[in-house]
């Protein structure tokens, strides 16, 4: 009978787990309908976009900067502010490094 009780408990645990998974899915869908990022995330994304544009104009834009900006934009679509901030920071840093590179000494002279 002990085995039965454990099995029953597992069944309950399993359904709770399933409920949790499904529940979080529903929750995410709710969030998507409410398009809002934190102020910090919006600002980070706007900054990254403008720094990447500057680097592009100078012909100094790294593919890693555009890659990170795309990830930040994707995260913004999913309303994931933390991810937006993380990817936007990488995009800005990589774009700044690309522009700073124009000041490096020339090679093979």
């Amino acid at each position: 009978m002990n085995v039965l009780r454990i099995a029953a408990r597992m069944a309950v645990g399993g359904s709770l787990l399933l409920g949790g998974v499904l529940g979080s899915g529903v929750h995410a869908a709710d969030d998507a309908a409410n398009p809002s990022l934190t102020d910090e995330a919006s600002l980070a994304l706007a900054n990254a976009t403008s720094v990447v544009e500057k680097a592009k104009v100078k012909g100094a834009l790294w593919t890693t900067a555009t890659g990170a900006l795309t990830q930040a934009q994707e995260a913004a679509k999913k309303q994931d502010s933390a991810a937006v901030i993380q990817h936007a920071a990488v995009a800005s840093e990589q774009a700044f490094l690309g522009m700073a590179q124009l000041g490096y000494p020339l090679m093979g002279n």
């Binding site: 039965l4 099995a7 029953a8 399993g14």
Partner: peptide, 13 residues
């Protein structure tokens, strides 16, 4: 049936 359901849950987990 209960056991079967439990087993299915274990596999699922």
């Amino acid at each position: 049936p209960t056991l079967r359901a439990a087993g299915a849950c274990v596999i699922l987990i």
